[in-house]
Design a binder for these strands. Structure first.
Length: 466
RNA sequence: GACCCCAUCGUCUAGUCAGGUCUAGGACGUCACCCUUUCAAGGUGAAAACACGGGUUCGAAUCCCGUUGGGGUCGCCA
């Protein structure tokens, strides 16, 4: 049987970091085994599900370059099937109608808390004569779960986990309005979709026991489960939409590359010896449950940025230009020209080691798109004193006589000038940088000159020369 | 509270399953130095951890028990 995994988000918000990692692990495992990776949108909560959220999740996955097989399954559309399964259970005597009122349930819950019990529902309709049903009350359908013995889960990550059945009450399968609950829907859908491995956050661990009971009642074979530890925020608590988790779009906006995000997320809870930088193809080859750790990890932006800076250095120049183009236009405060593009693409190599994110890259690259006459930041302005302006004039003079405009030749020429006037190179290079870029920070100044070319360089020097 | 899970540098982790090679390795971050036309990058080095207590054993980060700490779950949400 081919391996089939799935990612099953509920569309009640963006794709957050934890969901993204769950998706990644499922995807990696499917690709590792040559199996299939499916998507299921769990939109049965009509009040909280929105098409916008579905869209955001899909876009998040696309951004991460996590592709899924087949069309996404929308759980709500399978409601009739879920209800039919509940009827089967009813007919087989594995489920029953329960007519408890919300008040009764609340009382039971209070009583359970008081007694220190986990199971809430006391099973009062379990064996009761349906003839005793109150008038006009629509019943829910509950699973007739085993009351003794234990349910064992052989989890691929957590190992064997056992829970006494008396800790689990008879869960609701069908609501009073006839709609299926999550617990039923997941089981039916995972079964119908031939899911072989369920990889999800370990906040679902206890659900797995309940689901196992449903599988058993249905006489279906449960899938393998792998409950991965959660990602925690800096405070050590579960990250959720309500608690510190950002959508993947926030990381995209922050200038993180998708491949960096994948690499970082992969290392959060999974390891392969001391390997840190792991390409996706390598990850696909290596990924397995054995590498998944059992303890929760904290999200660390600094490490993400470090990984990101690595991938930034590897990234293609043209692609980088495309990614920062709109920010660049903002920095320039005007549309980008073909010349801007040429300069940025030529200059980006020297910019890469100076940026951890695309945002920083765009800021650094702005020197190549801001047009003359330049406005100078205060530090740059300070560098351009009378003496400096005079020297820049002399330098422009020398440069204009240069036949070839190449980094090594420029370097030789400027160094010769510094020597001729008897100053250290820095005394010349910094004003040069100021005049050319309007700032005090840039890649090597000879590289900058090469990117601008002879004409532009001399023009810029002319702008400030005295 | 009940149930379940977890526990190695500040953080991510290797090592744990098959005890000795671990005076515990790597990465991020931090600090110092080198390089240097600025800022980075890069190079070299440093500080930094087996939660605690009992066992078992010739020997325990590794196995067992307990304690403590952290987390998760307890819905007619998913």
């Amino acid at each position: 049987m081919t391996t089939t995994t799935r990612f099953a988000p509920s569309p009640t918000g963006f794709l957050h970091i934890g969901g993204a990692r769950t998706a990644l692990f499922n995807w990696l495992y499917a690709r590792h085994t040559g199996g299939r990776f499916l998507l299921r949108i769990e939109d049965t909560d009509r009040k909280r599900s929105t098409p916008e959220a579905t869209q955001a999740i899909l876009e998040g996955l696309e951004w991460l370059e996590i592709d899924w097989d087949d069309e996404p399954v929308y759980q709500f559309s399978r409601m009739d099937r879920h209800a039919a399964v509940a009827q089967e259970l009813l007919a087989a005597g594995h489920a029953y109608h329960c007519y408890c009122s919300p008040e009764e349930l609340a009382e039971m819950r209070d009583a359970a808390r008081q007694d220190g019990r986990t199971a809430l529902y006391d099973g009062r309709w379990r064996d009761r004569d349906p003839g005793e049903a109150p008038e006009g009350v629509a019943p829910v359908v509950r699973l007739k779960a085993p009351q003794t013995g234990e349910t064992v889960l052989d989890d691929k990550v957590q190992g064997a986990v056992t829970v006494a059945n008396d800790q689990l009450d008879d869960m609701v399968l069908l609501r009073a309005d006839g709609t299926p609950t999550y617990m039923l829907s997941v089981v039916v859908d995972d079964h119908d979709m031939d899911i072989t491995h369920v990889i999800r956050g370990d906040d679902h661990l206890t659900n797995a026991f309940r689901q196992t009971q449903i599988y058993k009642a249905l006489d279906w074979t449960p899938p393998e489960f792998a409950h991965i530890p959660l990602i925690h925020g800096q405070d050590g608590a579960k990250m959720s939409k309500r608690h510190g988790a950002l959508g993947v779009d926030a990381y995209s906006d922050a200038g993180i590359l998708p491949e960096a995000m994948r690499n970082y997320l992969l290392r959060l809870g999974w390891s392969h010896g001391d390997d840190e930088i792991i390409s996706t193809s390598q990850a696909t080859e290596w990924f397995d449950f054995g590498g998944i750790g059992k303890s929760p990890a904290r999200f660390d932006m600094a490490k993400l940025e470090s990984v990101n800076s690595h991938y930034l250095k590897e990234a293609d120049d043209e692609r980088l230009y495309e990614l920062i183009a709109s920010d660049l236009a903002t920095h320039k405060n005007a549309p980008l020209t073909k010349e801007d593009q040429t300069r940025v693409v030529a200059g980006v190599e020297g910019l890469k080691p100076r940026a951890k994110t695309l945002l920083e890259l765009a800021t650094a690259a702005a020197i190549y798109v801001r047009p003359r006459p330049l406005s100078f930041d205060p530090k740059a302005e300070g560098l351009l004193d009378e003496e400096a302006r005079h020297r820049l004039g002399e330098i422009a003079e020398r440069l204009s006589k240069l036949g070839e405009w190449q980094v090594d030749i420029l370097e030789k020429s400027i160094k010769a000038y510094a020597e001729d006037v008897g100053v250290k190179l820095g005394k010349v290079a910094q004003p040069l940088r100021a005049a050319l870029t309007g700032t005090t920070v840039s890649p090597g100044i000879f590289d900058v000159m090469a990117v601008f070319g002879k004409e532009e360089t001399i023009a810029r020097l002319g702008d400030v020369a005295a």
